[in-house]
């Protein structure tokens, strides 16, 4: 069996602050296969973005990877020298950030930024790189790319800019694309176009995608599998159909319940009371226990590890072997 494109095992991320060590990611593990789209969902602050950053080695002090490993197509990359890791970024892993308005350097023509990236990662000449930039822009749907390649970022709309960002992420034909909330900052009207574009381009290339979002609609349409994150831990991970249609973990249930669908009335929306704990105040035992309606004694002292349940893995004492449900 070939190795997955991305394999994360037991990833732990700490922020060393004056008030002590804060653990932002704890024992995070997941795989993404070639051509697969893994959705990463969770409330704001759950640790989705730092997961993406940790994979590409862009954690800045005071943050540090404190444990676990990251493999790209079987090769361990979390312990590479900074420059070796830098060469992987953009070439083997493309990245798309949330805000296209701020992702592009306002002082450089988009063509310059494309050519710069292409030349860093390929042996192309200036002229070839420029031609490739035009082709890429055409491919991501920029009209009159030949002309627009010399424009500055501020001369594009938000949606167009995100297309440019996608072109930048794909310009070296990476194996993996990490898209961190690629549509959150965009007009609702263009969100679908961008997702469709991203999906199509990655499918065509067989590129694996880590799609970070809190838009369950996007996940439902795009992802093959979904990971639900809570307080830096994976609560539930499994095929999109299972997790969205019949979530197991009480937190995932709450999260999915909040997706408005045609069938559900607004008043039937499941709301999760309370809010996600701050890193400095993650409860003992199951991190979710203060908000969990199903919580019982064990939840407050012991921490649930992900265990198989059907096609999914769930970190909850209600599931898996040794389950211990009260009634």
């Amino acid at each position: 069996m070939t190795a997955p494109v991305l394999s994360v095992r037991g990833l732990r991320l700490d922020f060393v602050t004056r008030r002590g060590v804060l653990t932002a990611l704890d024992n995070v593990s997941f795989d993404i296969a070639k051509g697969e789209v893994l959705g990463l969902v969770g409330e704001s602050g759950a640790g989705k973005s730092v997961t993406g950053a940790a994979i590409i080695g862009l954690i800045e002090p005071p943050g540090r990877i404190a444990g676990g490993e990251v493999r790209l197509s079987g090769e361990r990359i979390d312990n590479l020298a900074p420059d070796a890791l830098r060469r992987i970024r953009g070439r083997r892993i493309g990245v798309i950030f949330q805000d296209p308005l701020t992702s592009l350097n306002p002082l450089f023509r988009i063509g310059d930024q494309l050519v710069e990236t292409i030349q860093i990662h390929t042996p192309l000449t200036q002229a070839q790189a420029r031609q490739r930039a035009v082709d890429l822009l055409t491919e991501v749907g920029i009209p009159a790319a030949e002309k627009r390649v010399d424009a500055y970022p501020h001369e594009f709309s938000g949606g167009m800019r995100q297309r440019v960002v996608i072109a930048l992420a794909l310009c070296a034909e990476p194996e993996l694309v990490i898209a961190d909330e690629p549509t959150t900052a965009l007009d609702v009207s263009v969100q679908a176009q961008i997702i469709t574009l991203l999906k199509r381009l990655c499918r065509d290339r067989g590129t694996a995608v880590l799609l970070i979002t809190h838009d369950m609609g996007v996940i439902a349409e795009t992802a093959d599998r979904v990971a639900v994150m809570y307080a830096g831990r994976i609560a539930e991970i499994g095929p999109v159909h299972d997790v969205v249609q019949s979530p197991l973990h009480p937190y995932a249930k709450g999260l999915m319940g909040s997706i408005p669908t045609l069938e559900t009335d607004a008043d039937r929306l499941v709301q999760i009371p309370g809010s996600m704990p701050r890193l400095s105040a993650i409860p003992r035992g199951c991190a979710f226990n203060p908000r969990c309606s199903k919580a019982f004694d064990r939840c407050r002292t012991e921490r649930p590890e992900p265990t198989r349940s059907g096609r999914s893995q769930v970190a909850c004492f209600l599931y898996g072997p040794g389950r211990e449900a009260p009634q």
């Binding site: 590409i56 862009l58 900074p82 420059d83 830098r86 060469r87 992987i88 970024r89 953009g90 070439r91 990245v95 950030f97 805000d99 701020t102 992702s103 592009l104 350097n105 306002p106 002082l107 450089f108 930024q113 710069e116 990236t117 860093i120 990662h121 960002v165 930048l168 992420a169 070296a172």
Partner: peptide, 23 residues
């Protein structure tokens, strides 16, 4: 963000600092 993005694109650190940030 554009500096983070430049790094994410694999732009070498010196270029990030002296071309993108300094300008």
């Amino acid at each position: 963000e554009y500096i983070r993005f430049a790094r994410a694109r694999g732009v070498p650190e010196r270029v990030v600092q002296l071309r993108h940030a300094l300008r």
